[in-house]
């Protein structure tokens, strides 16, 4: 497996996305290489989730092209593992943790699952990787938020994706669970060269792992390293108003994001992490 023959995990060429007359962003050209960790930041409504939907093949681009592992984006692509934000499952959900992981392998297929040891072995391995083997047989609805999120990561990884898409996976998790989840994601991309696209409103929990940042705001965007993008100059230019970015003690604090962009924008001003 040499880098020369491996296509980028994600490739966007002059891509644009919008609804009706409203343009979310355009002219986006971006390669995410295997093993790379890309954080996607930006206010609500800046098109973060729409970007994910386009990568998942759920929404067509209005211009440009998008390919995943060298193939045009399509719905249900096996090359993508997808982790959503933590949402509390109903306690009576009739699935065990291992069944949720199994869904990542063949939950989309027609018919009834045939009993097979091979599939369950892969499920066990995925649960083992995220340290969730101890509660593999627990009803998933009885697990804590952090445990459920580990199980979801195992579900996203069990089919060995080339690209791991994470949509706010840390939301409503406590600090130690956030660390565990980001650590798991980082380990995966180091050991298996899985590319990671990590949508988050909060850069600090993933700061140690991020290779590049894609920052979306007001129809424009910036791509680059953390230092390049998360600077007072870049963000002020992007938002068109003065913004103060402070790098301190391994954390980044952003102040002055305009109200219109911030109403649901969670980049905290003085304290980085939502408790």
């Amino acid at each position: 497996m040499s880098d020369i023959v491996t296509p980028p995990a994600l490739q966007l060429r002059d891509a644009a996305l919008g609804y009706g007359g409203h343009r979310l962003w355009s002219g986006l050209t971006l390669d995410v290489q295997p093993g790379e960790f890309l954080a996607v930041l930006g206010a609500n409504g800046s098109g973060k989730t729409s970007l994910l939907r386009a990568i998942l093949g759920l929404q067509p681009l209005s211009a440009g092209s998008l390919s995943v592992a060298g193939r045009p984006a399509r719905r249900g692509s096996r090359a993508i593992g997808y982790v959503q934000q933590q949402r509390r499952l109903d306690p009576s959900t009739p699935l065990r943790a291992r069944d949720v992981v199994r869904q990542g392998l063949d939950g989309h297929r027609w018919g009834v699952a045939r009993p097979g040891r091979v599939a369950w072995r892969r499920v066990d391995a995925a649960l083992e990787q995220v340290g969730a083997a101890a509660y593999a047989d627990m009803p998933v609805g009885l697990l804590s938020g952090g445990e459920q999120q580990r199980v979801r990561i195992a579900q996203a990884l069990v089919a060995d994706p080339v690209l791991l898409l994470c949509d706010e996976p840390l939301l409503s998790l406590d600090l130690s669970s956030q660390r565990t989840i980001t650590g798991l994601v980082d380990r995966r991309r180091r050991e298996h060269r899985t590319a990671v696209v990590f949508v988050t409103h909060e850069i600090n929990p993933v700061l140690p792992y991020v290779d590049r940042v894609l920052y979306l705001a007001g129809g424009a965007f910036r791509v680059g390293t953390v230092e390049e993008v998360l600077s007072s100059a870049t963000l002020s230019e992007l938002y068109g108003s003065p913004i103060e970015v402070i790098h301190t003690g391994g954390r980044i604090l952003v102040a002055g994001v305009p109200e219109s962009a911030r109403d649901a924008h969670h980049v905290d001003h003085d304290e980085g992490i939502v408790p």
Binding site: D137, S172, P275
Partner: peptide, 22 residues
């Protein structure tokens, strides 16, 4: 196999079906 007692590590979670970011 496991006792479900320790559930302290979950923060307040939005309900299923709550709106997405955009």
């Amino acid at each position: 196999r496991r006792d479900p007692a320790p559930r302290a590590d979950s923060g307040p979670a939005p309900l299923i079906g709550s709106g997405q970011a955009c």
